Simulated scan of single mutants.
Amino acid sequence: MLMINGKEVAEILTMESCIAVMETVLADLSEGEAVQSLRQVLPLEERNVLGLMPGYLRREGVAGAKIISVFPGNHGSGLPSHQGMVSLFDAATGVPLAIVDGQSITAIRTAAVSAAATKLLAREEAESLAVLGTGEQARSHLEAMLQVRGIKRAKVWSRTPGKARAFADAMSSRWNAEITAALSVQDAVMDADIICTATAAGEPVLHGAWVKPGAHINAIGACRAHERELDTALVAGARLYVDRLESAVHEAGDYLIPLSEGAITADHIIGEIGGLLKGHVPGRGSSSEITLFKGLGLAVQDLAAAFYIYKQAVALNKGVEVSL
């Protein structure tokens, strides 16, 4: 069995390769070739949780699970909010194949899924970006959006202005785009063609009144039924897509809270990104519509990324072989 650490994951799993892997597994999920159960979430103290996410990739012949801790309070402490591991098994024999660093996979694959959604839903001419948050997901989403649209300008917002300025300075030296700090969410998003929300918020930080017609939004921060990043008016006025319908109707507060308020109906979700990839789900209807992708993160995404990493690690002689 191979042990593959975070440094090796980052070396192997480029954003470009991960976007392709995510498109494949999302399409497979819509066709029943990738299978998963709802994640089990064990509440800990405060808002902290431990999650178990099992899945099975039929075509690849592998199964496994991600075990992950989510500690929102780690923001600003020097520790990541998401930490864990992905276990990978041969589905024909049950032989353990690998344990792969889950933090690095989560950072890359989450943004890659948003990129897949953005390729399908954002207007082709989109060139301005807003990123809400300055953590690991903010960095990876900036990279992912630059991969799929010709972004010329990006604004970043944080509850701590100094973090936004530091983020803008660091990312400006890395990417060929004008990246600046915004003093408010409204300032960050008012002219944005694409908005990525990657915050630890439990209450809305983004309001529909601030979003311009034709914008596309990737909302990935809130992952529990009672938490959300978006206000009701925004969700009600947007064309909503999800990574997995079953997950959204159990876990997505951004959908469930407006539903409980009567602002939307159960059929407000247009469909899954996998169905959109396969042509079974309609996409953007006009250049003025606001499109919204609500991503919760799926076990099959982690397994697909881990299997790609495992194959590359074997070919490149990376990882450490261990015996159980």
Rank of each mutant, 00 (worst) to 15 (best):
C18D: 04
K66P: 05
R224E: 09
D101G: 09
G84M: 15
A306E: 08
A20N: 09
A117Y: 03
H75N: 09
E229C: 11
A20Y: 03
R174V: 13
G283Q: 06
E227I: 09
G208S: 03
G73F: 11
G271Q: 00
R239L: 06
A138R: 03
A170T: 03
T291S: 14
A92Q: 09
M85A: 13
H280E: 10
G150Q: 14
E33C: 14
L26Q: 01
R153S: 00
I105G: 01
E261Y: 04
A92S: 10
N218F: 14
G297T: 05
S184P: 09
K294V: 14
S114P: 14
A252C: 12
I290M: 05
R58S: 09
V249Q: 13
D191K: 11
G61H: 08
E16R: 10
F71H: 05
L230W: 05
H268Q: 02
A98H: 08
G84E: 03
A181K: 02
A198V: 08
T232E: 00
R59T: 15
A209D: 11
S114N: 11
E125I: 15
S87W: 13
G283W: 06
V205S: 04
A166L: 12
T291M: 08
G61V: 01
V62A: 03
H268E: 06
D187E: 14
K163N: 10
G319L: 00
L52F: 14
F71T: 03
A111C: 13
E60D: 09
A112S: 11
S37W: 11
G84N: 07
P96H: 04
A65V: 10
G221N: 05
V185L: 08
P161C: 01
P43T: 13
S87Y: 12
V185W: 12
V205M: 13
E203H: 13
A313V: 07
Q312S: 10
E23W: 08
L316S: 05
R228G: 03
G73K: 04
P96K: 02
N5P: 00
L29S: 11
M53W: 10
S37P: 06
M22N: 04
S77F: 00
V62D: 05
S172Q: 10
E321T: 14
A117S: 07
E125V: 15
A236Y: 00
V95E: 11
V49Q: 07
T24A: 13
Y241F: 15
L230V: 09
P43I: 15
R58L: 12
R109F: 13
R174D: 06
S17V: 12
D267K: 14
S287M: 13
P96L: 05
L324Y: 13
Q83G: 01
W210E: 08
L146A: 07
G64K: 01
R159V: 03
E289M: 10
V205Y: 05
M3D: 08
V70E: 03
N176V: 14
L240A: 11
E136I: 00
K155I: 00
V300R: 01
A215V: 14
V156Y: 02
M22P: 01
Q83R: 15
V281P: 04
G214P: 00
V21N: 02
C223G: 07
V95A: 02
F71Q: 02
L296F: 01
